[in-house]
């Protein structure tokens, strides 16, 4: 095994280390700049929209000042989650056939269904 000497590492390695990390930074900073501009390009004034929403929310909140704790939020979220997971539009296609047992009734009797009059003997 070679001795570990960080100063004697190939100059190529130094270059790749620093340049490589820098390029990753540049690439992602480039993305940040672009994505900061996207809402403006789309004509969305995000700050205005947010301000508007906050105003509406404030007006709504004035009427009923409700402070929800984390636990309440979690309970609501859980209820919603369970509700939406319980909804299913695909059925299992298994049909349960219930056996219906009935007592004898002359209405369903076979005997009365036969025409015994001209039966060959």
């Amino acid at each position: 095994m070679n001795h570990i000497n960080f100063l004697v590492v190939d100059s190529q390695v130094w270059i790749i280390t620093t340049l490589g990390w820098l390029i990753v930074f540049v690439a992602l900073i480039f993305l940040i700049i672009v994505f900061n501009q996207v809402p403006k390009l789309l004509g969305l004034d995000v700050k205005k929209l947010i301000a508007k929403k906050e105003k509406v929310a404030e007006q709504g909140a004035r009427g009923s000042e409700i402070e929800l704790t984390g636990e309440t939020n979690a309970a609501i979220a859980m209820a919603l989650y369970m509700y939406f997971n319980e909804l299913h539009d695909e059925e299992s296609n298994v049909i349960t056939i219930k056996k219906v047992t009935r007592n004898y009734s002359p209405w369903s009797s076979k005997v009365y269904g036969f025409n015994n009059v001209n039966f060959p003997r």
Partner: peptide, 18 residues
């Protein structure tokens, strides 16, 4: 991007290990 320092530090360390 900042967390990718791990990649390049290890690249450097591995080179130092031969």
């Amino acid at each position: 991007a900042a967390a990718q320092v791990g990649i390049f530090a290890t690249f450097f360390g591995a080179s130092a290990l031969g």
